[in-house]
Design a protein around this nucleic acid. Structure first.
Lengths: 221, 221, 221, 221
DNA sequence: ACTTAAGCGAGACGGTACGTCACGTCTTGTT
DNA sequence: AACAAGACGTGACGTACCGTCTCGCTTAAGT
């Protein structure tokens, strides 16, 4: 984003923005190229890590010219956001019958994603880049963080539907609680896996979830 | 001898290793240079961020030759570890009279560190680099993570001394619990500040701490 | 492709190899850059000498990136060969009516070239480099030495045409004689100017040529 | 020479200047170090060539500190002059009975020196350096060129003693002739061996000498 | 014996140039 | 107008030597 170039269309982010309704006059963009680039990006991330990832390398591996790549993504960060985001699109939240079970499932699913080499190397690097680039941080939140947060919200909805939680909770307060819980889940798993370097086992998940569900005053009936 | 060889060279990291007892034979390394480099690194981090930090720039700002810099630190990552680590050396853990107060103080102190621009930009980047470099990860743990973890351990000792916790707790189990709690504190604060981008207020700290101190089965008497 | 490989790469030296018949696929190399580089090289040689000549300096003076320079010439030596070679391209050999006059003209022309500051500083340095690099030595011979040798051969042809020399001379023997004479002319002038540091005057040329043309057994009729 | 430093004694060139009569007050310079340095220089020249020769490398190979080296020689060039000069000290000129035989012996001896790898790589490089440094050129002439030139002068004296040449030759004219002949011999052999890259065989020497001794007007009786 | 002064090894120091890499843009001809 | 190819200016990289400078030690000569 923040194109310093004189291009008209401020990088329309094609993978998200589908095909433009008004077909341009010239040759349309290749859809297969998009996919090849994203695949190549994930592969290269897994093999070489964030630091070893190169725009030129991705282009070469995708069988695409560098110009084609820059026509779609303005920088390595944005490209990787999209490449990683697709992994987080598949998150689901089946109702497993209890809040504890639901949260354990979410934690397990998130931990699973964080053991992929491409995710390990990319996620923290993106967060780091985002700490100085609000535009990028917004994009990361939209494409990567939000899909996870939705799971927690679904979990709460399910719990309320099951009668485990008070359905008449003040929405603002509930949002704050969800924020705390989400930061806690995501941050803790990331720190456990990527900083402390300890594995996330089923036992750990159970104990961590139990810690979470302790008092939660106002959330539990 | 053989300066052209490609030995791992292990970079003994003199700034950390005190003064060697056996005085080296040649001209000793300049202690002022060490300090100037670390200071310049912190300043440059705050101004330019991790991505904008350049070895050449640091050298120039410190009034030092690039070779002098590389003689001490093998890479930007190791240099930044030491530069940031000094900020974490000053952590203390005064006994504030209750476990809740102690934990709140730790969280507040950590959040405070994470609002420094140099810490914000450097910490996640270091963690990201470390995800592919075990050597670096070990170093980060020793110099940055461990000093924080010690605080949590002190907090537990204080709580036991005050009688808030069972002093006869099985050490292995206690260590695991400490691990969980530490990952939770550190990870959550990082995620809150750097990923979610929300501020860490006194109110948030209180609520988060309360969440933490809920059941803690076996820890609380 | 594969710019990271360490192939000999043979550096096709486009400036010498005319325009390739098969037009390359990408953006063609800038012809003006070639000329600017060679000009800058000659100027820098004259000002700073071989030892003071720097690839970075040449690039800057030519208004060109260092990479552009290295894309064409693999080393300072090869670059200087081409830069100096252009000076030797202009050599001619007008028929002055007698062998003595012709040789005097050749000697004078060569001495004239050797008084240019860029030639003085570059020629011996190239020869010195070539003494350990057969590849470079071959290149020097092709681009610098051979054009001079041709003059001597033309002189012989002229002499034969004028009847000063036996036209039925055994070619092999004649080649050897030419080799001797050429080494003598070139080596002596170089040594006189660059080692002994004495000037090459018209009188000196006359006496040296007379020495050369003494017996020439079998060559002169 | 040409010391840019603030040392008092303008590099007294110890190997040539023997032990100073007035012994200094401090520790005297090590004579073995001098020899070790010169030997190391010659060896390194033969192995690595002029371009690969490094002051640090020589010091290391000689088992000597860099400071010791710089205390004696101000630069690589001066050091190599002395290292190479010792090879030219051994030149002799036995009277072989005729001018032709004497010259052939000189040519053969010089060609022999020029086939040593250290000489090949060093000689032209020194001449090249000297082309921009009159101080160095003078030194080269004194230590390397002059000893060779003396041979030619001895040859002339022998020839005069044998009656092959007019003993009453005008000294000034004779000096000029000697200059021409010397430049011719040295330059031609150098060019033959180092530029043309052709061997100097006994046959070539005979033909070249014959060419030289053609008319020599005024020299031969 | 003791002082003095220089030589000596080791190696850190501020520099400069190196040759390479990736960047993001541009100019080709082709689709 | 998108595309593959690849040249282009830019700037950082990490290394190699440069010649100088501190160190602590050694080696004599002159007290």
């Amino acid at each position: 984003m923040a194109p310093t170039t004189r291009q008209p269309a401020e990088h329309p982010d094609p993978p998200a923005g589908k095909t433009p309704l008004v077909r341009g006059k010239g040759r349309p963009r290749s859809a297969t190229a998009d996919q090849a680039i994203l695949d190549a990006t994930r592969e290269a991330l897994a093999e070489l890590g964030w630091g070893g990832l190169t725009m030129g390398h991705v282009a070469q591996r995708a069988g695409v010219a560098k110009t084609t790549l820059y026509r779609r993504w303005p920088s390595k960060s944005e490209l990787v956001v999209d490449a990683i985001a697709s992994l987080f699109d598949q998150l689901e939240c089946a109702d497993r019958g209890s809040l504890q079970a639901d949260i354990e499932a979410v934690v397990a699913r998130f931990a699973e994603l964080l053991t992929l080499p491409e995710t390990q190397t990319a996620l923290l690097a993106l967060f780091a880049e985002g700490s100085r680039d609000p535009q990028l941080r917004r994009r990361i939140r939209e494409r990567i963080v939000q899909p996870q947060k939705v799971l927690v919200e679904h979990g709460r909805a399910n719990a309320q539907a099951r009668g485990e939680m008070d359905p008449d909770l003040d929405p603002a307060t509930a949002d704050e609680e969800i924020g705390i819980i989400f930061d806690t889940i995501a941050g803790t798993v990331e720190h456990r896996l990527l900083v402390s370097g300890e594995p996330v086992t089923a036992d750990w998940i159970r104990r961590f979830t139990t810690l979470l569900l302790g008092p939660l005053p106002g959330l539990l009936r």
